[in-house]
Design a binder for these strands. Structure first.
Ligand SMILES: [Mn+2]
Ligand SMILES: [Mn+2]
Ligand SMILES: [Zn+2]
Ligand SMILES: [Zn+2]
Lengths: 129, 129
DNA sequence: TCAACACTTTAGAATCATTCTAAACTGATA
DNA sequence: TATCAGTTTAGAATGATTCTAAAGTGTTGA
């Protein structure tokens, strides 16, 4: 709790009630993939009602401070990932299923990068049925 | 033109004026990545005004018949890809830049597939700045 | 050839995730 | 503790996409 406050302060974020609840859930040591909606539902189960606007604001605040990664896997919802290390995913669109691949993956056979561009990151998505 | 009509018929799609125009543009031999919006704009330049509803309908009809692939790279627009072979992409979100990688790419070091799941496809996205 | 009908197109409304607005609230600071 | 910048929030707005239902058209069998 005080850890969380310090954690937020160290990221230049005021430790408000809402941020403490959200950070407490997201950064409890278990990596998670959440959408604004799933996060809202999860917190509601724990009797923490926070407006969707604040949930969106907070996810973006955390994202902008590098505490979350953003994943675009489907066109109609954005996932935020508490695992900020470079990693890849197993993904099932049908079952909304998302699992980290933390092992080192090597991608071989890439053609040369287009002129004047630089590779930012290589993302591997293993689509499952 | 008659080729296009046959092409559509052979895919169980009635060769309507609109579908002929859209297929004529999409399948002219040059691989393309389009959004509903970009396609609409492109056809308008060629003096072919087709309602957005029809453009969406047609893209989905083509997709459902395997004539297009669907790409989810950004949360706020869906790309359709005329290259239906399995391939990967260079992508710049900032510049809305999308280039096919047709070379064979090998992905090594994947962990074992989750129980009871099967790999549908492996997608590699090379993000550029 | 052409009537009949299933399939298609379309304008406009609806949907829905997300963002915006602006007013009330609160953490930090002196 | 007063002050103020930073936050939260309800509700409106946005924008891509889908839906609705009415008008239009390609196909086909006689
Ligand atoms: Mn949507
Ligand atoms: Mn959107
Ligand atoms: Zn992850
Ligand atoms: Zn492509």
């Amino acid at each position: 709790m005080n850890d969380i406050k310090q954690f937020l302060r160290s990221n230049a974020l005021r430790p408000t009630k809402q941020r403490i609840v959200i950070a407490g859930y997201l950064f409890d040591g278990i990596d998670k993939h959440v959408t604004a909606e799933s996060l809202s539902t999860e917190l509601a189960k724990r009797k923490h009602i926070i407006s969707l606007a604040t949930i969106y604001n907070t996810l973006h605040d955390f994202y902008e401070n590098g505490l979350l990664k953003k994943l675009t896997l489907s066109a109609d919802r954005v996932y935020f990932d508490t695992n900020t290390d470079h990693h890849h995913h197993f993904y099932s669109e049908k079952e909304q299923f998302l699992i980290d691949i933390n092992k080192n993956i090597k991608v071989n056979g890439l053609p040369k990068t287009p002129k004047n561009k630089k590779i930012n990151k290589i993302e591997v998505i293993v689509h499952l049925d």
